[in-house]
Structure formats: C-alpha cells, structure tokens
Design a protein around this nucleic acid. Structure first.
Lengths: 249, 249
DNA sequence: CGCAGATTTGAATGCAATCAACACTGGTGG
DNA sequence: CCACCAGTGTTGATTGCATTCAAATCTGCG
C-alpha cells in the first residue's frame, strides 16, 4: 500500500491513462492511488498471463509493450491488441474467471499486479471508478471490432496503415509518442499475426508505404511522414477509440 | 413499470439469458423484473440503433434476430455479432455515449427499450447485477476476439463451421434451438459479411459442408447432422462464450 | 404471373500465401 | 576481435484460395 504523500509514478500512469477516456474526481484519484501494487519485470517475448489460467490479480503495464493473442490449432497465432503504459490488458479477468487468450510482453516490460479484491472493493465504493474501468473494457471491445472489420474487409495496405495510426494515437494520448514518431517493438511477423497477413506480404506493403512517403520504419521505430495521407490510406477515424475530445488532437 | 405479481415474459427472457452467464439471487431477479421497458417492433432489415447516435436507452431483444455491423468506405460491410432473445446488443452504450457501429434486425424483431437511468440505478444498488451486465459486455468482447482470430487465421470452411457452432450453442443455452436444429435468418451474403468472405464463396463452402454431411441448411433453417465433426471442422471450442458449465452441454 | 431477392454455377482474375534463398543485424562465445 | 549464429528483413518465383464478373436458376410473394 502506498503510504507516501501523493501518487507513485506507477499510480500516476494508471491515472493518466484513465483520464484519456474518463474524467475522475480528486477523491477518485486519491482512492486509485491507494491501490496495492506488486511489481514484476517481464522479459521480451515472455507471457504474463496464459490462456486457461484464472488470475487473481490484474496487471497494469508500467513500462514496455504487451500484446494479447490467441494460438489456434496447428500453431497459427492471432494477435488481438497491443497495450502500453497505463493499460490493464487483463482487466476483464475481474469478471471472466478463466482467460480465453494469453498476454505476453513484446519488449522488456514492467507490470504492476493489482489484486482483484482491491479492484472490486474500489469499484463498489467509487461508481466513477467503476464506470472508468468498465468503459476501458468496452473500448478494448471497440478496438477488437475495428480490427475485425479491418481483417474482414480492408486491404493489406489499409490494415497496416490503420494499425500504425491506432498505436500512434493511443501513444500520443498518454504522452508516449514524439511529435511524429514512436516505438513499435514488434517484428514484421508479429504485425502479420495481428493483421491476418504473412510476414512476406507485410514486408512488401511496408516498402510501399515507405515508397509512398507515408512512413519510415527502421528497427521498430516508426516515423510518420504524412499524417493526413496515412489516415486516409488506412481508412482511419479515431472515433472508435472513444478518447476524450481534448486527447485526440 | 411492472406492477403485476411475478415477472413478465420479457423480463423472464432477460433473466434467462443472464442466468446462462451468471448466477442471480432472488432479490436480484426481483429487482431486474422492475426494470421499466418500452416495446418496439422492428421490421426485417431495419436498423435499431445507428452509428453516431447517442442512445439514452439500451435495447433488449425480446424476439427475433439482430446483428451488429459496421460500414466501411465504399460500402463494404462487416457484421460483428449476432444477437438473439435476451441479449442487449447495445449494453455498451451505458458507458460509451456514441455508437461506433450500428445494430439492425435481420428478422421481424421485438425489442424492449430500457432507459440508461434505470440500468445505472440498478447496477449501483445491486453489485451482482452490475457484475452480470459487465460480464455480458466482456463476453461480447470475447466473441469479437474469436471472430477476429477466425477471420485472421482460419480457412473459409473453418469460419463457416465455427459460426454455425457458435450460434447453435448460444441458442441452445437459452432454449431457442431444437435438439439439432435452429433458425439462422441471414442470407449467404450476410454470412459472408460476417466472416470476411464473398457471397459466392460462402455458397460453395456451404455446399461442401452439406456434401460432407455436416449440416443441412435450407431457407435459413440449419440442421446439424454431425455435431462432433462440425466442431472439429470449425475448430470450435465453446470456452470463449464463458457460459455457466451446466449451460454448455 | 411477374418480380425482386437469394442461391447457384461457370470462368477469369488477383491478392496474398507459400516456398525457397539470401542479406542483414545484433549478440555470444571462442 | 572476429566468427558464428539465430532472428529478422528482403527478394524472387510459384501456387492457390477466394474474389470478381456474369449469367442462370430458384424462391417466395404481392
């Protein structure tokens, strides 16, 4: 339990993230700061939670990069979302006991484990906090829907441009992106697994995007060269992220 | 407001559905029965809620069949879920003001409009009800994930077999399926739009499934001929539906 | 009956997968 | 320090699943 005066850096990241999607009162923020956290460092390419498990804590990403994925028969993998500092990718485990997918780190990552009990208690006492958490899980769902629409109906070029737009906007909302660039610590193979494409094809489409001077991307560092055209190329409209208005711009 | 003794048929359907995913106390069920409902009949192929709107009610499906979909640039459509009696497809609007997709009826449908205010009040007073509703939205999200994995990584044959398994299991859970058959009031074009396939290809795959004696399907009425083989063909495992154990079998 | 929507069939095309090398990179150990 | 190695990125050639286009049949219904 945090006994010091004021929020810890970790609690701040949680609050910063929540404030991109909901407004919190001072009282609610204070209560959030009292959430107990146990910290855990996770290596690159290591699972944090696995399908089939029944976690008793949620994990908040403090630093690093995490993805949510499922493995199908014969080893095919589908990545279903990316998560960054402040996100609680397994918040759903609060009300869905057994994990139907896994969550793994794609970069050296630090997570804060928060007991379900503490979260449940908090949500019962503070309806505004409950609303914010619930809303967070609903936005996750909105992202799944958007990805579903993309994989189902968008071309490879659109999908790749779209996912770059999405990560950029979400990173910018919590202050993790520079003016026009950010870190995307995934391989082309992993990009393929999130978009339903082969590694080879991802590679070729990325070359096209570079040729078209929409982005540069060398060793997991993305720079956006033409934000307007990139959004058009990706058929990207940030509404589905349900960010508070002042956080989108 | 329901002043009669005992639940109305409409409230019963809501409770029946919720009890497939959560357990409710008598007190909670009584409270649910007091939810105010205004009814509305919706024709086939008519929208109930549209993208961009900010509803002040949620709609529970009383009877009929409903789907959730998004329209992308140049008119492509992606259907993202199907909903049947007892479901509240726009429950998310409780905490996500503006709709990022539309919901439309695929059969003559009757819905019950329940004011957000009443739902919010109820969830605050009854944490068990809140948990059940939250869980319901989380299961929706789990279905999106499963569909995403399917569209991203499964073959056309798997996807079609899979969606048939899913609808069957969900219908059976609320008593809407016979022993081995159920109504699926969607066209092959709509099946395609939910699975990211063309109409023509859906047609051919359905013929294959019939040839393999897995299902029959004439005019929106599906009969399952070999449940075990169908599940295998669709790589279907019902875990992601998070039904209570006694409702799966 | 006639019509619109839905299903079915056929043929041609194309996007992306797969297969197979090869090049580049960073990290490790000899 | 350099050789080596595994993982990643890149390229080329081939294949194939699914799309698209087009037209014919079927179905239910006013």
């Amino acid at each position: 339990v945090n006994k010091s005066y004021g929020p810890t850096p970790e609690h701040s990241k949680l609050i910063r993230k929540l404030e991109t999607i909901a407004s919190l009162s001072e009282l609610e923020k204070e209560a959030l700061c009292k959430l107990p956290m146990r910290f855990r460092n996770v290596d690159e390419d290591t699972d944090i939670v696995r399908e089939g498990e029944t976690p008793s804590d949620c994990c908040m990403v403090v630093e690093g990069f995490v993805c949510r994925y499922k493995v199908l028969q014969k080893g095919q993998r589908q990545i279903m979302s990316f998560h960054i500092a402040g996100d609680i990718p397994d918040l759903q485990s609060l009300h869905l006991e057994v994990m139907d997918h896994s969550i793994g780190a794609k970069a050296p990552t630090r997570v804060a484990m928060i007991p379900h009990a503490a979260l449940n208690e908090l949500t019962l006492k503070f309806p505004g906090v409950m609303a914010a958490f619930w809303r967070d899980t609903l936005i996750d769902a909105a992202v799944f829907r958007e990805w579903l629409a993309g994989v189902g109906r968008r071309t490879a070029h659109q999908r790749i441009a779209h996912v770059i737009c999405e990560v950029f906007v979400r990173m910018r909302a919590v202050g993790l992106a520079k003016e026009d660039s950010f870190e995307l610590p995934v391989t082309q193979a992993e990009l393929g697994d999130s978009l339903g494409l082969s590694t080879v094809h991802v590679n070729r489409v990325l070359q096209d995007l570079r040729k078209d001077e929409l982005i540069t991307m060398r060793s997991k560092f993305v720079r956006i060269l033409d934000w307007d055209r990139l959004q058009i190329a990706g058929d990207f409209q940030p509404d589905y992220l349900h960010l508070r208005r002042d956080r989108v711009a």
